[in-house]
Nucleic acid binder design. Structure first.
Length: 221
DNA sequence: GCGACAG
DNA sequence: ATCTTGTCGC
């Protein structure tokens, strides 16, 4: 799929933060998703090794989890890892990978956050603007906000709150495992993000899309 | 000033 | 993220 270039990625941290504050106003997270129409879900992940970033995007079909398409992209890692600026590190390779997609996913699932970010624009929200498609942030550990540990039963959740605002949820995706942190990315609200994540989750803690993307990226690296 | 800090 | 084998628990 062809996506429009919104801006340059090689920005000094200070400018990157200023850009995030500007783009945050364009992110839409109050829109319910009609899950009955979500059939193709893309999992997105990047694995970094020896200065090279290996991206993988895997599209699965719901509700059977069959793999529809897998695309890869590899680039030298030009940006350092700075908490809060992950999109500037992984954005370039991801754009290259997205351009290779032959299918148009109904939804994208990211390894990381969307709205649950200091400036409310984590990688899922940021890439959502480039994709102009619904996106969800699905992180393994918290970036910001407070939460009470949800019951250890699959499907249970607790709110992730930051500065008095609900920014996401801690969701138990597998019995007796640590929760995943879900947040709306773009063109999707939190409730839909949680429901969609459950529809994409099988017998593992990680939802199938990102779990398979992680596997594909590691294998290709 | 001090601690926290996605991948 | 990555460095790394076996091992405890549901």
């Amino acid at each position: 799929m062809k996506l429009h270039s919104l801006h340059s990625w090689d920005l000094p941290p200070k400018e990157a933060i200023a850009l995030q504050k500007k783009l945050a106003g364009q992110v839409i997270i109050d829109r319910p998703l009609d899950l009955s129409k979500v059939k193709l879900v893309a999992g997105v992940d990047v694995s970094v090794k020896d200065g090279w970033s290996q991206a993988a995007v895997v599209i699965i079909h719901l509700p059977d989890f069959h793999i529809i398409e897998t695309v890869l992209a590899k680039q030298q890692t030009a940006y350092p890892y700075i908490p809060g600026l992950l999109s500037f590190r992984e954005g370039p390779v991801l754009v290259e990978a997205f351009e290779k997609l032959q299918n148009i996913p109904d939804l994208f699932l990211f390894d990381g956050f969307g709205y649950a970010h200091p400036r409310r624009i984590g990688i899922a929200s940021h890439m959502g603007l480039w994709l102009d498609k619904p996106t969800i942030g699905c992180g393994k550990t918290r970036l910001c906000g407070k939460y009470d540990t949800p019951s250890p039963q699959k499907g249970e959740s607790a709110e992730l709150v930051d500065k008095g605002e609900t920014i996401g949820a801690a969701l138990t995706t597998r019995d007796h495992c640590n929760p995943m942190f879900i947040s709306a990315g773009h063109l999707c609200d939190l409730d839909s993000a949680i429901a969609a994540t459950m529809l994409c989750t099988g017998r593992y803690r990680l939802p199938e899309p990102t779990r398979l993307a992680h596997k594909a990226a590691s294998l290709a690296r």
